[in-house]
Amino acid sequence: MLSYILSRLVALALSLVVASLVIFVMIELVPGDPASFMLGLNAAPDTVAALRAELGLGGSPVERYLRWVGGMLQGDFGTSYTYRAPVAELVTARLAVSLPLALMALLLSTLIAIPVGLYAASRRGRPGDWSVMGLTQLGIAIPNFWFAMILVVIFAINLRWFSAGGFPGWDQGIWPSLKALTLPAVALALPQASILARVMRSAVLEVLGQDYIRTARAKGLSRRRTLTDHALRNALIPVLTIIGLQFSFLIAGAIIIENVFFLPGLGRLVFQGITQRDLIVVESVVMLLVFAVILVNFLVDIAYGLADPRLRRRS
């Protein structure tokens, strides 16, 4: 077992090294000098040079790479060129928006998807099933930014129930903040809920086809009881897997929605970082995101390894 964990650890470290190299090279290739961007049209060359020195943009690529990686190993993710604040601080501030948004979207989509999937499975092949499944197909096909736009027109501009975007901050009260995240969360949740409902439906159908369910039914358990007692619990495993996948997508994948609702989230920090050539922010945030996913994969690997000795032997 120890050797298995060790081999996974080596793979983890290698993945991180490769990922950091890939990210660094991409960032190096991005054209546009941060210093001259910040100083604008009329800046004299020596002013630009002074700022470059101040930002720590000098040195060979190898030196810069080692400095970046070395800093990260000590928990220093660099200082934003534009905001002049530590990247770690910026990320923490932005996560206060992105994390709740992702959680809210996930909660919404789960709350919608589980009953809908269950309902469709229980009505398999009947009109109820078709229409629900047809709707989920539609939900998957709708681009979420377009949906977001329609939501804004209806609920912010015409009805004025919600503001069109922005985020007041948690210190202004929980309710206003949750309200500000509602429309974006709905826009994000729609396609996720559709996917999840479909997964839920097929997972339930899969379980219903198993022998022990047939036995339960044969023993006289009602259809409803079978569904709730057995099918639901067992179908939750694939559903939870998908939810986990969706969560990591929602953290980084909300860029466009964050733009539509001008939310100060992590996605927009990266997007802004790219357009304003605040490359250290992009570099470090992308690395953090990749690290998070790789770490989760690693933990899942270990968990599977513990549960299934066959996997251990394979490696």
Binding site: S15, M26, A252, G253, I256, G267, V270, V286
Partner: peptide, 9 residues
């Protein structure tokens, strides 16, 4: 593991 949209951008 790479955030697809960010990399595309």
């Amino acid at each position: 593991a790479f955030p697809a949209l960010v990399i595309a951008i």
